[in-house]
Design a binder for these strands. Structure first.
Lengths: 131, 131
DNA sequence: GCATAAACAGTAATCATTACCAATAAACAA
DNA sequence: TTGTTTATTGGTAATGATTACTGTTTATGC
């Protein structure tokens, strides 16, 4: 009765996924748009946003929760940590992850604490060289 | 010769600071606007934004670096940790801070890692009761 | 091929924030 | 107290990121 909602593997969705997996950067929606447009010049920005959200929902990519005015996406879904450049917002991967301490002691009135994540901050090489 | 830029303690700036210090929530600029408007009905939203930035720059308040589409502010400048409700974005204080592990081992190609911060995520009571 | 509805391109609308500017008012000297 | 200077204000327009809408296209199953 209740029709299961299908998802179709469109050309656009596939290229977005491929492009995102082909880089180690953590592009914004707009940057993904730029990458994908080289292969599909007529794709629209709305399509990029829509597919990035759908791909994140299905677990094929990550929508990063880090601070900054633009959301960033990651084609690498294996658990790892990130650094964010405080000057330009660029995000990088942290190798040799730092072990997260035991969180169970965290008391926060009015909240149920579910998880914790280390947010690294720093400066990327590009910004450092501009110093 | 070069005239030192003065900062003036205006009525608006003072009320914003007082209101922010009077609550334990971590209001957005718009929420601060709502609070302040009860005492200064003619204040403009732009004034609120401008003063929140200036007060953060001078160290009188904190501009929180946490994720979410709206920036949040904190009148409590003593170091402490925060939880963010993943449903509504509300931010709360963590009592009994969790000790941050040694960060010096964090390697991130193309980045200079300067600091790390634990980002707690959870659900606030309001959202939990809506479950 | 044909039908169906998910997804698309293009564009308008929304939301948060910033920029602009003529008018106002802190701060300080006379 | 009054005047002068200029930081700050209110009001509004502009920007940037994202979301919503809509008629058309196209992936998918029969």
């Amino acid at each position: 009765m209740t029709q299961q909602q299908q998802t179709r593997m469109t050309k656009q969705r596939m290229v977005i996924l491929e492009e995102l997996r082909s880089v180690h950067s953590h592009p914004t929606a707009d940057e993904v748009y730029g990458m994908v447009r080289q292969r599909l010049p007529r794709i629209s920005l709305g399509t990029v946003y829509r597919n990035l959200d759908l791909l994140a929902e299905s677990g094929d990519i990550l929508k990063l929760e880090s601070a900054g005015s633009q959301k960033r996406f990651d084609g690498n879904v294996t658990p790892h940590q990130h650094v964010r450049c405080t000057q330009c917002g660029r995000v990088g991967d942290v190798m040799e992850p730092v072990r997260l301490p035991d969180i169970s002691g965290a008391r926060a009135p009015g909240f149920i604490v579910l998880s914790g994540r280390i947010e690294f901050e720093g400066v990327c090489e590009t910004c450092a060289s501009k110093n």
